[in-house]
Write a protein that binds this DNA or RNA. Sequence first.
RNA 1: GGACCGGUAGCUCAGUUGGAUAGAGCAUCAGCCUUCUAAGCUGAGGGUCAUUGGUUCGAAUCCAAUCCGGUUCACCA
Length: 621
Amino acid sequence: MQPASLNGSYIFGTFAHILHCITMLTHIIKNAAGQGLKSLYPDTIIEIESIGINQTKPEFVGDYTVVLFPFVKLLRQKPDFLGDQLGEYLVANNTMFTAYQVISGFLNLTVSDSFFTDLLQKEFNNSNYGTSNLSHQKVMIEYSSPNTNKPLHFGHLRNNFLGFAVSNILKATGNNVIKANLVNDRGIHICKSMIAWQRYANGATPMSTGLKGDKFVGDYYVKFNDVYKQEVLDLMNSGMDKTHAEKEAPIMKDAQQLLRLWEAGNTATFDLWKTMNGWVYEGFDITYKRLGIDFDKMYYESETYLLGKAIVEKGLEKGILFKQEDNSVWIDLTAEGLDEKLLLRGDGTSVYMTQDLGTAVLKYNDYQLDRSVYVIADEQNYHMQVLKVILQKLGEPCADGIFHLSYGMVELPTGRMKSREGTVVDADDMVDEMITMAQEQTEQAGKTEGFTEEELNELYNTIGLGALKFYLLRVDPKKKMIFDPKESIDLHGFTATFIQYAHARICSILRKENMTIFPETKQFKELVITQKLSKAEKSIMVALEQYPTIIESAAIELNPANICNYAFQLSQLFNTFYDQHSIAKAENEEKKQLRLMMIVMIAQTLRHAMNLMGIRLPEKM
RNA sequence: GGACCGGUAGCUCAGUUGGAUAGAGCAUCAGCCUUCUAAGCUGAGGGUCAUUGGUUCGAAUCCAAUCCGGUUCACCA
C-alpha cells in the first residue's frame, strides 16, 4: 500500500509525463538522437525514452549532451566511435545542430543560434510564456485553514504562501483551480477565549482598545491559559493530583459548559461566538489582504462538523466498519499497516476524522473535483493517510483525488513555536519587520531619490513581502525549516530582492531606450539575425527555453521552490550578461536590437515566475 | 516498538527517469564603479554527500542494514 501522498503524485505524474516531454528542447534532441541511431543501426531496437539528455556542463563546448554509455553494449561500439558517428549524422541531417564534440563517452551538441533566436522572436513579448495545457483537471487547494482563537503566526505564512503559489502554478498549467479555506471556527479552543473574555474583558472590544480583532481575541486565549495554569496549580497545592486538577479547574469546566451551550444552540453563547469570530475575521482580512492571499470558497467547520455521520452509517451497513460493545464505531486498517481508528464515539458524537470524511465528500460534490489538495503541516501525515484510506475502503469517489501537500514546520532555533510559551513569531509583526528592513536598506543604499513618499512605501512593501515569500517558498516544502528571527532575513544573494533588482535594471535600460516594458513587437520581429550569439547570450536563451518545463515540473511536484531556483538562476545569468555586454552601446544595431529583445523576455519571464508566487517586481528600486 | 519524513561546505539550501572534476547563497579573503542601477560582477579557500555493504561501465541519486534528528500511532482538533 502506498502512502496517500505518494499515491496522489503518482496518478498525476504519469499523466503529466506524456505531455511533459513534447515541448522541451531536450525531448526534441532525444527524438533526433533516436532517429539518428535508428538509421545508423536499423537492426537494433532502441527505446527513445532510454536516451539520456543533459545540459552540457559549462566547462565544455556545447549546449546539450547525449550520454552514450547505455548504447555501448547494445550496439557493440566504443563510446567515442558511436559519439562521432551520431554527432556527424545529427549535424549533417538536422539544421538545428551546428557542431558536436565527443568527450569520454559524452556527445556534446551545439544547438544552432537560430533555434533560440526563433524562439526569442516568437515569444519575447508573450506575457503568457511558460503557461501550458499540461492537464485540465478541476482541483481544489485547501490552505490557510486558521483557528479563530489567535492571530496567524510565522508557520501559517508558509502554509498560505505555499497554497497560493501552488494554486497559481496549477492554473498556469491548464487546470481549473478552486482556492478553499476551511476555517476552524468552533470547538473547545474557541470557547476558551470566549470564557476568558466573559470573565475578564469588562465588555472591552477591539474598537474600545484599538487592537486588531484577531490579536484582541488571541489575548483572551492567552489569558485563559494563564488562569488555567494557576487554577491547576492551586488545586494541586490543595492536594489534588495533576490529571484530576487539569480536569477540575473551574475555568476549564466553564469552557466545556460553553461548548455544550453552543452545541445546544444557546442564543447568548451563539451571539458571543459570532461577535468574537467576527472580530477575528476583521483581523484576518487585514492580514490576508496585506499578504496578497485570497480564496474562492470559504468552508466553516461550524457548518461541516456534523457531516460524515451518514457516511459512517453507510459504512456500517456495508460491513466495512464495526461497532464495539459501547456502541462506538471503528474501522480496522491493520491490513493497510495502520491501526484501528475510531469514527464515532459511544454516545454517537463524531470525532475530527468523521467530520473530515464528510467535508471531503462535500467538497467533491460541490465541485466535481478531479483532485483535492490539502496544504497541511507534516504532523498530520498520518491523519491524512488514514483519511484517504478510509474513503477508499468506503468506495467514495472523492478518495483517489485526495492529495496531502505536506510541509515541514517552521521552527525557531529553540525548537517549535508554542503559543502557550509566548515563543510565537506573529505574522503581522514579521511582515512589518521585513518592510522596515526593506526601508532601512533602501535608505542606506541611497536609492530613495525620484520616488514620491507613496511610491517609496509601495516599494518597501514589494521588497519586504517579496523577501518573506521567497524565503519561505525557496525551500522544498516537505523539509522543515529553522528560522532565526534575530538573524532575520537577508536581502542579498538567493533572495527575491536579487531578482527584483535584476528586473529593475532591465526596466531602467528600457526606459532609457524610451521603451515600455511591453514594447511593440514589429521592429523586433523584422530583425534579421546574422551574428553569432555570445556565450552569455546563449546561456540566457538556453535558460529561457527551459521555463515552460520548469513550471510543469513545479506543477507535477507541487513545489514552488523549483520556480524560485529558476528565477534566481535566470537573474544571475542576466547580471553576468549585463556586466559583460552593453545593451545601449552594443557593438552594432543588430546586437542592440537582439539584446533588447532578450532583456524584454528575461523581464517578462521573471515577472511571470515571481507572479506565480505572489511576488511583485518593481520597475525602479 | 510500528509507520512516515529528513541527514550534502562553518551556516541556509539546490542537486527528480543513475552520468563528466557534487553546485548556489550567506559568512571569510582578494579584485572590479568616469561607462545601461555595485541590492551587482569576477576569483580563492571550504566536502568521508550520516555509516557500511550491495547492484554496474558509472551511485549524493537505486537496494539492504545501521546510526542520528523529527513527526505520528488520542473516545484532542
